[in-house]
Design a protein around this nucleic acid. Structure first.
Lengths: 219, 219, 219, 219
DNA sequence: GATGAATGAGACTTCATTCAT
DNA sequence: AATGAATGAAGTCTCATTCAT
């Protein structure tokens, strides 16, 4: 009865993702509580009522935003695991710059901020995020660091700590992008994240490098 | 009745800071928009009306929270500048662990989250924060790194980038503390920040160390 | 395609009454204001839009429900007037139990409740109902009572009052059926209306019986 | 701190009952769903917001209306039980005319309609009403009928049936008052309820009267 | 004819702010 | 100074009605 390609149908199929996109932009910009559902609808080019045809409440819309946006990048991250061999440091640099610059430029970076902002009001979100994003990502990178140590490429260090040293600045860059950065407040380097990521990894890897036999202590 | 030391007077003098404290806790926890002014009053043990005796609006309360809370830690940070001599690496480690652990445990860490969360709705905040907190802090650390390079203790690196590599994880720890961390979601190391800070600085300093004469490149 | 007996045609002809039936059930159950037009459509097995093909608005639907449902029972009641002769009491009992038990079990009983519920919002309904239902019914029964008096079978009583004494409990039974009764709240006798009607008429007729010559007053 | 007789305090104490009264009038007139909370507030002379200071939701307001309004009349009915002796018929007439005319003229009569109208949407209401109003009332009257039978004043009849024959027309009068009656549609007797009640009881009592020894059957 | 996506007026409810006490 | 009752603008959500398909 409804030609699947009718303009009506096409609109309908696109609606949810149009609404999700609009909602994400606004939730990230203004916060969940400060965003009016009518604004979301307006940004998606529909009326108030239409929003509620697709999502039963503003809160469900928030959860859908988070779930849907992450799924893509979660999947992408996992693929990288199937990386071929080579010096671990190089692999790490490639993986991180490539993957992370993607994340930074993708909607996922906005989700980082959103999760940070809203966890305390919606703890489910945090639970989901930890399980689906943080832990897999941590394991992925931690595995590489471990490999470097096993192969004698890296010093024996605390894996979890190194993973944080590597990752937290990158996460922070994402948060910055959607907070201070989005207001045009940007201290120097914040403006060129991929350059910073390269430098940062260079510094970290230098720090990880296995000491020479005669190695003097750092401090 | 107006003896400045009468309990009543003391109460009255304490009001603003009690209200600020209550407001900060709630703004950080739930966000500005989701916090009701009555809640703030209740948490400070006064009535709704009293809040408006001290602050003309909820928005002014927010700004006061941010201004007032930061002033203390800004001052403290500045003092460290008057640090005496010694190997730069050691100085850096001492300065950062000491100062930062303090920040992490002080209300300032909460303000980081609050600023991040609310800049886009209240850009003045961001402007103030950048000028009073970020830039001075950045200069402080950047100065130390520069000194290390000048003295031949560190490699010649991009100063701003290193400052970010050093600082961003620490900032991120603060944000975590008041978002995921406050919900009990904590991956491994997040639980012991001062230990992480020590490890992190160790790694960075190792990476900064001036290469030996025969220095092979890291990658 | 327009064969009047084609299944499609039959469907179409039945639509209005299917919709009316669905509407009545829901209006009686939940009240007019609390019933959604989509529910009516769904219960009739059609879509929202179709409802508006047959009735221009929810309010017109209500009026149609009331008009249409009553016409049948109004007609039936009138037929009884053409009753043959016999003792008036017996006639009254037969007429009332037969007719009323029918009414009680027919959709008309639901309409009683609906009219009661909605008159004040839609006074036309009340006017129609009074003219077409209440007054004819009252005259029908009043005529019988009058006949009984004329023939010396009944005491000389106030006709209108007796009609009410006879009829109101029966009306009340109808209302009960669609309010408390429909919720499973039922005091004793409410459960068996035809038995009650018999007893009630017996009591009333006993009260109407012309007194003996030596008649002592009741009180 | 607040003088208990201050105008402010006095208003505050009166608010709930003013709101309840306004709500009852409107709920009875238009039905619960069709009454806007703002109308209730306006009729009570306050603003929308104030209503919600005293009742957490429109639904709770409805329940409060029913509970509160009935309590008075429930209590009054119970007192009558402590009636002194005398011929049962006379007692019944006095009790019913007195009590019922009061009920008819009190807000309770409105509640009858409200309960009837809303039970199916709010079953708790029906449960409460059955337990607190219908059953006690039924027992009260049933007890009197039983006494009449025991003393040989009345025929041996089905008690519950008689109670209904007595009471249902009176209840119906109440419903009428707030439905058709309130619209000015009134068939003859409906206009003078206390006169009708007298006549009705007279008829019923005549029907209840114990038959003479030579008693011929009614039919 | 039939559908159901879309609309937007309007309902319920909240909450920042005021002000009489 | 302190209170908390009152307000009403504003937000979330619903639903009668329309109209493109």
């Amino acid at each position: 009865m409804s030609d699947p390609a009718s303009p009506r149908q096409r609109r309908k199929d696109a609606r949810p993702s149009e609404l999700l996109e609009a909602a994400m932009a606004l939730f990230v910009e203004k916060g969940f509580a400060a965003t009016k559902s009518e604004e979301v609808a307006a940004r998606a080019g529909v009326s108030k009522g239409t929003l509620y045809l697709y999502f039963p409440s503003k809160e469900e819309l928030l959860k859908a935003v988070i779930r849907d946006t992450l799924l893509a990048d979660i999947a992408r991250g996992a693929e990288r695991l199937a990386q071929e061999d080579g010096p671990t440091g190089q692999l790490l640099v490639e993986l991180m710059t490539d993957w992370w610059v993607n994340v930074y430029n993708s909607p996922s970076s906005a989700i980082f901020k959103l999760v940070m902002t809203e966890v305390r009001n919606f703890p489910d979100i945090g639970e989901f995020y930890l399980r689906e994003v943080i832990e897999p990502g941590h394991r992925l990178i931690g595995g590489l660091v471990q490999r470097g140590i096993d192969r004698g490429e890296f010093r024996a260090v605390d894996i979890d700590g190194v993973v944080h040293s590597i990752v937290l600045p990158m996460v922070m860059l994402c948060l910055h992008k959607h907070s201070m950065g989005a207001c045009g407040f940007s201290d120097s380097h914040m403006g060129n994240p991929s350059e910073f990521i390269r430098q940062h990894l260079d510094l970290i890897l230098n720090g990880l490098r296995a000491p020479r036999s005669d190695g003097k202590p750092v401090l």
